[in-house]
Design a protein around this nucleic acid. Structure first.
Length: 422
DNA sequence: TCTGGGGTCCTAGGACCC
DNA sequence: TCTGGGGTCCTAGGACCC
């Protein structure tokens, strides 16, 4: 049986989440900013109409924001993650297999549904149900491959006459849409590939679909060859029913204020490491390798800059913050160069293993059960919201911490922030 | 003054082995 | 003076995604 995928994607997701609790802003130009209030990551329809691009640095928009009274929000990930989970649960109630692809989109397996009912009708039902239960608007793209479903979804967003649902099962319809889509809009074709393809005269998705697969594989990559097949309706990427095991955990931030002393860098890195280790334990994993990286600003063109990274491994995987932090501090000392203004740093945990249970490793000291108990206790206290336990290395005065000047309340995850109806 | 953060996959090249 | 061929594993870097 040939496969059928639907891609369900929330419109302007972060902005829509904010508007849900601020109905007064439903038709206003609204922006959500990245961490540190650095650049634009989500825009309302009205903000897009004002010509505000994606990922534009905010300081370039000051005048526009003032003139058009654009409302800005700092990213409120607790809110977005919670609403995302509700949308995904709604989809799971309607469809047999849902592959959550990102915070605001999911692939749904519709194979076999066509035998029972019109695919477009089913798409509309998904859309209406999410709208009714959560209050968020989604668009639905339906096609025989994930790449085409992505394209169908874009068409659904772009053309209001579609009512937010596009089914590309019909090859003639598919062909018409591919001819309209610039090649850079295809999933898997980024800026670099687009430039190369344009030089060869491949400007539309249709032209890419009609390219010779073997030739593309040889001169570009296996991925792009796969994309060509997918554009022709041949599914090369299955629906992932089980989430694949995680490969790495990264915690990294730009600093609100530049760091120039090793002591300050140590508190930042220890802070990031503590966060990463918390997530590690939250997923019942342990890590063997730690990587630390730091850099000066990549903007400002010429002038001296410094960017470097270093890694080290433990002899056995651990989920104990103290083990991982010792390695982090050692790597900091190896990397540190005095005399620079650092703008960003981060910690990465890789070489991940499932956390060991009660089985004892011959070479591990007898302290492991105590270690797990201690970490569990720390995580429990920190999750309670009542207070925080932290390690000395993290310091008490993080002057570099993230800027979040326009944060909305945690409407759905903190009792005190519940919206009140008067 | 101010330019995000967190991921995945693939490839090329080096080290090492038989 | 000769200096193969095939394989694996690891790492760094590139490209892409949201």
């Amino acid at each position: 049986m040939s496969r059928v995928f639907a891609l369900v994607d929330c419109n302007n997701f972060y902005v829509a989440c904010e508007q849900l609790f601020r109905p007064d802003l439903r038709h206003a130009p609204v922006l959500v900013l990245s961490n540190n209030d650095g650049c634009v990551v989500s825009r309302s329809k009205e903000a897009k109409a004002l010509g505000i691009g994606m990922a534009v640095p905010v300081f370039q928009l000051r005048e526009q924001i003032r003139r058009h009274r654009i409302v800005t929000f700092s990213s409120n990930y607790a809110l977005y993650a919670d609403l995302s989970a509700r949308v995904m649960q709604t989809l799971e109630q309607l469809a047999p297999a849902v592959d959550v692809y990102s915070i605001d989109e999911a692939f749904v397996d519709l194979t076999g549904v066509a035998a029972v009912r019109a695919l477009e009708d089913f798409g509309r039902e998904l859309r209406q149900t999410v709208q009714r239960c959560i209050g968020l608007t989604v668009c639905v793209g339906i096609a025989p491959s994930k790449t085409l479903a992505k394209l169908a979804n874009q068409a659904a967003k772009q053309y209001p006459a579609t009512g937010g649902v596009v089914d590309l099962s019909d090859p003639r319809r598919r062909r018409r849409l591919l001819a309209l889509m610039p090649v850079g809009e295809v999933w898997g074709v980024g800026r670099r590939l687009r430039e190369r393809l344009l030089v060869e005269g491949i400007e539309t998705a249709l032209q890419l679909a009609e390219a010779d697969v073997t030739d593309i594989r040889q001169r570009y990559s296996v991925q792009l060859a796969r994309t060509v097949c997918e554009l022709n309706g041949e599914s090369c990427q299955p629906l992932e029913d089980l989430p694949s095991p995680r490969q790495q955990i990264i915690c990294s931030r730009s600093f609100a204020r530049k760091i120039s002393t090793q002591a300050a860098m140590k508190t930042a890195l220890c802070h990031y490491l503590a966060r990463a280790a918390e997530r590690l334990r939250g997923e019942a994993l342990s890590a063997k390798m730690v990587t630390v990286f730091m850099r000066t600003s990549s903007f400002g063109g010429v002038g001296r800059g410094y960017a470097n990274s270093a890694s080290a491994s433990l002899s056995v995987p651990s989920s104990d913050t103290r083990d991982l932090m010792a390695l982090t501090v050692m790597l900091l000392q190896r990397l540190w160069r005095q005399g620079y203004d650092y703008s960003k740093a981060g910690v990465m945990l890789t070489d991940l293993y499932p956390q060991r249970g009660q089985q004892q490793d011959l070479f591990v000291s007898g302290s492991e059960p105590q270690s797990q108990a201690l970490m569990t206790t720390i995580d429990r206290i920190n999750a309670s919201g009542k207070s925080r336990v932290f390690f000395a290395g993290q310091g008490c005065d993080p002057s570099w911490r993230m800027r979040q000047a326009h944060l909305s309340p945690a409407y759905t995850t903190r009792w005190s922030d519940l919206p009140v109806v008067r």
